[in-house]
């Protein structure tokens, strides 16, 4: 016993080092593994308020650009308004509301913290569970997809950015509907890789890439990016496709949180299917 104590006393520095280091490792693994609202992140209220205050200053520098974006978007919505259409056909048209059911609803939010220089980038937005935001909801900007909600606190949420090597998004080539998974390779914040497109598919530089209907997180046909380069790899049946992302992650400020109202129903049904398979 005594010699054990002497041993501990002699190596106490190394012991403290190992304990702290193991604790740090546990934190890293925990934080990557569980998508739960942990206290120590920027959806934490106090830090959220500080970032919000800082952002209210830096926002002024981007005002011009954002106004421009919003004006373009407003114009697009005005084009969809009923009063910008006239009846071309004099026949009656029956409209039955029970035929359609709302599937997605949108909530606008402001980005208050953002990064593009890490391997695992996150954004913080100023809407939380008070506003109905939940984990796994999609986040889109006027220009394209941005990410998926990870943690939610009362007033703030953190969003896994597309520029995060751990996030995969189901995307398809608009002209022929072949779908693959989009993933960032961690090097250039303007580019991402599209995997799992078979090498017989006709895909060329300049093709448009949109979200597929299989993601459940994003509505289908939301812009993701433009094909930049198509490489065939020796011995592989799949292309290596490089994508120019349509969202400018260094400049994005206003985003929309997408709520898929039928997501829960789909998930429950798929769970039942898995149980039958077991």
């Amino acid at each position: 016993m005594r010699s054990l104590l002497r041993l501990i006393l002699r190596y106490h520095n190394i012991l403290i080092f190992l304990i702290l280091e193991i604790f740090a490792f546990i934190l890293i693994v925990q934080n990557n593994k569980y998508q739960r609202a942990s206290f120590f992140n920027s959806s934490n209220y106090a830090i959220g308020v500080m970032y919000g205050a800082l952002n209210s200053i830096s926002e002024y520098f981007n005002l011009k650009e954002i106004n421009n974006q919003l004006a373009i978007e407003n114009a697009a919505y005005k084009n969809m308004l009923a009063n910008s259409f006239i009846f071309y056909n004099e026949n009656f048209q029956l409209e039955n509301d029970t035929l359609t059911k709302r599937k997605y609803s949108y909530l606008n939010a402001k980005i208050i913290n953002n990064s593009v220089n890490r391997q695992t980038n996150f954004l913080t937005i100023d809407k939380g569970y008070k506003n109905g935001v939940e984990p796994d909801m999609g986040v889109v900007s006027p220009n394209g997809v941005v990410g998926v909600v990870k943690n939610v606190s009362e007033n703030f949420s953190t969003v896994i950015s597309v520029l995060n090597i751990n996030l995969r998004i189901s995307a398809k080539i608009k002209k022929n509907n072949y779908f693959g998974s989009l993933q960032w390779d961690g090097s250039n914040w303007q580019k991402a890789m599209l995997n799992e497109i078979p090498s017989h598919v006709d895909v060329k530089k300049g093709d448009t890439l949109v979200t597929s209907e299989f993601s459940g997180v994003f509505p289908s046909d939301i812009l993701v990016g433009i094909v930049d380069e198509v490489n065939s790899v020796d011995g592989s049946n799949f292309f290596e496709i490089s994508i120019n992302l349509s969202t400018d992650f260094k400049n994005v400020s206003q985003v929309y949180v997408v709520n898929n109202l039928l997501h829960k129903e789909i998930k429950e049904l798929e769970k039942e299917k898995e149980e039958v398979n077991d």
Binding site: H12, I16, F23, A24, L27, I28, Q30, N31, F40, T158
Partner: peptide, 28 residues
């Protein structure tokens, strides 16, 4: 003392981590 140096390093790492959403990374 080394033990105090380690504790200070730990506190520094956790503080930076909390702000950058990378819990444990800077700490380690």
């Amino acid at each position: 003392p080394t033990w105090f140096l380690l504790i200070l390093s730990f506190i520094l790492g956790v503080t930076v981590d909390v702000f950058s959403n990378t819990l444990g990374l800077h700490t380690a």
